[in-house]
Amino acid sequence: MQTLGNFKLPNFFNYPPYFTLQPVRDTREKQVQLWKELILDYCRTQKIFVIALDEEFPLFSNPVIESIAGSLNHEARQAFLSALVSEGRAEWMHKGHRKCLILWHRIQDWADSIVQFVKDNGLEDTVMTVEEIRSGVESRGTELHGIDRTILMRALKLLENKGKLVIFKGSSADDEGIKFSL
């Protein structure tokens, strides 16, 4: 089985027609389904949060398959990501659909992880910065470590709306503070 780093690639990845968007509806549905699962799996294990459509992405081409056959064209990439978007597992970051935020955890699930993280570390009534959650000592070894800032802010906003925390402008201009009140 072919691997990408420590990631095991599924068998269909070696079958050239999976790199061409299929014209027959049912065949395409199956194809899209397989690609959706692959993209989510890969991003989850590799902690990838953003896929740019026009940039190199390991999954979008298979060097084992000759020439351009093993490479997804723009239309196919867009189709697979759009399928994820329509399921709430991804979001276009701009109107132009150039970059896509991959939600291998939904925002709600990320919010739950934050709550769990706060409880595990006894931070219920303390103040932290956003940057501390992303890269601080406390979050090391948890899924929150290295989380995409956009996704983190979305999850925090969700919790703020529920009254579980307050976001405020911190001392440094580019960071924000969080006051938990769980």
């Binding site: 050239p16 027609p17 061409t20 065949t27 351009i68």
Partner: peptide
């Protein structure tokens, strides 16, 4: 209703392959 073939258009000769 799945077909028995899949197409593969990614070739420089422009010829569609039926797998």
């Amino acid at each position: 209703t799945e077909g028995l073939a899949m197409i593969d258009d990614g070739h420089s000769d422009g010829k569609r392959r039926y797998w």
